[in-house]
Amino acid sequence: MGKDEKEDSGFGFKDKAKAEETLKLLEQHDPNYRRLTVRGLLGRAKRVLSLTKAEDKIKNIKEAMAVFENWLAELDAGKEKKPDKKKEEKKAEKKEDKDSSSDVEMEDKEEKKLPADKVPGLGFKDKEAAEGTLKALEGRDPDYQQLAVKGLLGSAKRVLTCTRDETKLANIKEAMSILEKFLDDFDTNHLSKQNNAYLSLGIVRTAEKSAGDAVTEQQRAFIAAYSSVNGEYKRLRTVEEKEGGKTWDIVRNNALKDLKEKHADAKLFNEKDEPTAEHLELLLWAYSPEAAKVKKVVPETKEPKEDRKRKSSGGDETHSKKKKE
């Protein structure tokens, strides 16, 4: 079984200090990500409490949970209108097969036209829903898989508290056991280390210029898709490749798996600190084993103004998945 108190990301709940550190680390992320992560950690913390006998450890975890619960309470208190508790419980039951986190409202009109950044159809109402969830997450960024499953488990635990139907309770618990096993295996196999962090769109454009005719049609299509979502890589989860029907996050991970094996021992920079041809193949997929150095030595190429105008006027032809009801 993997460690519950501490994630590879640096987030954790082993004590009050770790909880406070986690909230500080989360400040750099968007509000929806912070809320979902804190709820997920609370769910994991409750699970650990049920398995822990050491009094000092229980005390520390409860103090950490209090930090998270107070943070969530303050967050809810900051809303213009506090939701009715009974209405919220009914709403939770109706949406038990969906991720509980709502999309952050976007103020920019252009942003509203962008594809969703969450995989549709994830759920936990029964065994089939849980298995379907894991199937839908296959091939996607490991960090996203972990975050999505944690969010679902947190939602499932909240639904259990306001559900009285025995059949429904049994179905949800069966689904939770499947999702919990996934998280245990995820930690045991250190899958987070397989995450392919994205480089900025500006660096990818520079790599495209440097690679010239060596850029494949599929790579050009990926760069076009990445451009269509303004470099917001999370939105590639719902943007499909025209051929094959897979979303670009999955296509990218499949391509990088082969390239990382192919260029495992390749030299990444020449004497002038310029990316080698092998390295460019990886950069064209917005990835590098030496991302920190790339950010220092590879300049970013901005999108031409005429392209931005064309995109804002509705000229972009990216195809997105329809969100399941």
Rank of each mutant, 00 (worst) to 15 (best):
D143P: 01
K98I: 06
F68C: 02
E107H: 10
G151K: 05
E80N: 06
E89I: 08
L42T: 02
D30C: 03
F68W: 04
R35F: 09
E89K: 14
P83K: 09
L23H: 04
Q146H: 13
G132I: 09
K109D: 13
K24Q: 12
K81W: 00
L147S: 08
A130R: 01
D99Q: 12
G132W: 09
Q28A: 15
K109L: 13
E138L: 05
K94R: 11
S102Y: 03
K18C: 10
P31Q: 09
E111Q: 13
L51F: 09
K79L: 06
W71D: 12
R35G: 04
G121R: 07
R44T: 12
K79A: 08
E63I: 02
G151I: 06
G132E: 03
A19H: 08
G40P: 06
T52I: 11
E55D: 15
E128Y: 10
Q146W: 08
D103T: 08
L42H: 00
E88M: 11
L153N: 01
E74W: 00
E80K: 15
K16N: 05
D99E: 11
D117G: 11
G139V: 08
G151L: 08
D30H: 10
P31F: 01
K18E: 14
K95T: 12
K53A: 15
L75F: 06
G43P: 05
E80W: 05
M65V: 01
K150R: 14
E89Y: 07
D126W: 07
N60V: 04
T22F: 05
K86V: 08
E27C: 03
E55Q: 14
D108T: 03
E131H: 02
D97V: 04
L41F: 03
G132N: 14
T37D: 01
K98Y: 00
P31M: 07
R140K: 15
G40A: 10
D76Q: 14
Q146E: 10
K118E: 10
K118N: 01
K62R: 15
E107L: 15
D76M: 10
K46R: 11
T52M: 12
T133I: 06
L26A: 05
L153H: 04
S50G: 03
R34H: 06
L153T: 06
L42M: 13
D143T: 10
A64Q: 04
E21M: 07
E27H: 06
K18T: 13
A64N: 06
I61L: 09
L147H: 00
R39G: 07
R39P: 00
A136Q: 04
E138I: 04
L114D: 11
V48A: 14
W71F: 14
G139P: 01
K24R: 13
M106Q: 14
N32S: 13
D84G: 08
E88A: 15
E105W: 04
L134D: 08
A66R: 09
K62Y: 03
N70W: 00
E74Q: 14
L137Q: 05
K109V: 12
I61T: 01
E93G: 00
L51C: 06
E80R: 14
